[in-house]
Write a protein that binds this DNA or RNA. Structure first.
Lengths: 127, 127
DNA sequence: GGAATCCATCGACACCTGTCAATATCGACC
DNA sequence: GGTCGATATTGACAGGTGTCGATGGATTCC
């Protein structure tokens, strides 16, 4: 029955959601980090590198963004747990954290469903 | 070698990323839709419903948000392709589009890696 | 037709965010 | 120590976003 006062019901009451406010806030923060084209392209660049890593001086050029902007994006991604930072001599390397991406997928889709979806995709297209 | 003028190189030049500006913009728009706790909780509520659907009157209560705000979030999610809208008599039902979530996972992690990750997760915890 | 209900849109507001130029910080090397 | 090159931080600005009250449209029921 509906939440309020109607006499005729439209559907069963929604269960108390699995996702509580606090967890929702945390997850949202991570997805917000993915919600910018520049940051997605940074991740893409890193993924294309052997080892999934690169130093900043190689990231600032191709995106057409200024160095401070790239630095800002890298910070956002790092704070979201999507990148690791490591200093080597003068340069600073950022590396993809694939486990974190896996966690996000798991949050989006229950593992069972995901496994099924994977099988289906693998079956249809042999990529 | 670095992009600019240094004499000593720091790493190999970053390949032209797989993700072009246009695709990045589209993907980012979808992730931005997931970047709000209220919207994530809406998705969670829907996922907890049999059939993954519910009418608006059941969604506006539990979140502590006003009806216009919920309506706004539902619009954003629908435009991102994450929800389907269907009218039934007076009520309007929104339903999860799981395929779209699968697409997002595929965009985050190459299918091969994802399959491996799934196997690992299934092996460690039998959830 | 009129009233009632459900949902969407509008207008307004505070706040957050992406961007850059300028400046600061931090290491390496001389 | 001083200089230089690589990143980070700051300050400022325009534009985007979440939120709500008020209003409008659509549909059912009397």
């Amino acid at each position: 029955m509906p939440m309020r006062k109607s006499s005729t019901s439209c559907c069963a009451p929604v269960l108390a959601g699995r996702l509580e406010a606090k967890q929702a806030e945390e997850l949202a923060e991570t997805f917000r980090a993915l919600g910018d084209p520049g940051r997605l392209r940074l991740l893409s660049f890193l993924a294309a590198q052997p080892g999934g890593e690169a130093c900043v001086c190689n990231l600032t050029g191709p995106l057409g963004l200024s160095q401070p902007t790239v630095s800002h994006h890298l910070k956002v991604l790092t704070e979201a747990g999507l990148l690791e930072r490591e200093r080597r001599a003068t340069w600073i390397y950022y590396r993809l954290r694939l486990e974190r991406l896996g966690e996000l997928c798991a949050a989006l889709i229950p593992p069972k469903r995901l496994a099924r979806s994977i099988q289906r995709r693998a079956a249809s297209a042999g990529s």
